[in-house]
Amino acid sequence: MADRQGSWPAALPPPPGYLPPRNVPPPSPPFTAMPQRPTYREPHPVTAGPVLIGLSATTAWFVLFGSLGSSLTSYAWWTIGAALAAWAVAVLLALFGDRGVAVGVAVASGLALSIALLFVTLRWVATYDFPLW
């Protein structure tokens, strides 16, 4: 079968009566008497900027408090105290302040506490002696 080299012919117009006459207005949509559906928007959306600010401020907070510890035990206790304070600040920010910063604080404090308790767990497994007592 040979390929067609020229252009295809234009489509034929539809038969008479297929399209409505142009001077007739379109029908109204059903249920026009009902009110429009509401659109819900977040009044204070969380954006990336405040989250990054909360992450960076909390990271600095944990670096400062973690550097106060001279051993694993003191590092872990300083980190636990800093995490409790950071979570209290995150709750206050979520209720009364910027929720984006609260998310950043909560994420960074959870990560920092997880890292500290990972080191505690590794020492506990290696020595069979719980380092926090």
Rank of each mutant, 00 (worst) to 15 (best):
G6C: 06
P9E: 12
A10L: 12
A11G: 05
A11P: 04
P14T: 01
P14R: 01
P14M: 04
P15R: 00
Y18E: 02
Y18V: 11
P20L: 03
R22Y: 10
R22E: 10
P25G: 14
P27G: 07
S28Q: 11
P29E: 03
P30C: 11
F31D: 10
T32A: 11
P35C: 07
Q36W: 08
P38E: 09
Y40W: 15
Y40E: 15
Y40I: 06
E42V: 11
P43G: 11
P43A: 10
A48K: 05
P50T: 04
P50G: 03
I53R: 00
L55A: 12
A57F: 09
T58W: 03
T58P: 03
T59Q: 13
T59I: 08
A60L: 00
A60F: 03
A60Q: 01
W61F: 01
W61Y: 06
F65G: 00
S67W: 15
S67Y: 15
S67M: 13
L68P: 00
G69A: 01
S71L: 09
L72V: 03
S74N: 12
Y75D: 04
Y75P: 04
W77K: 06
T79P: 11
G81A: 15
G81N: 15
A82M: 11
A83K: 14
A83F: 15
A85P: 02
A90T: 07
V91I: 11
V91L: 05
A94Y: 04
L95V: 07
F96N: 14
G97D: 04
G97A: 04
G97V: 02
D98C: 14
G100D: 15
A102D: 13
A102Q: 06
A106F: 06
V107K: 12
S109N: 09
L111T: 09
S114H: 12
I115P: 07
I115M: 10
A116L: 12
L117V: 08
L118T: 08
V120R: 03
T121D: 06
T121M: 12
L122T: 14
V125W: 14
D129L: 06
F130H: 06
F130Q: 01
P131R: 05
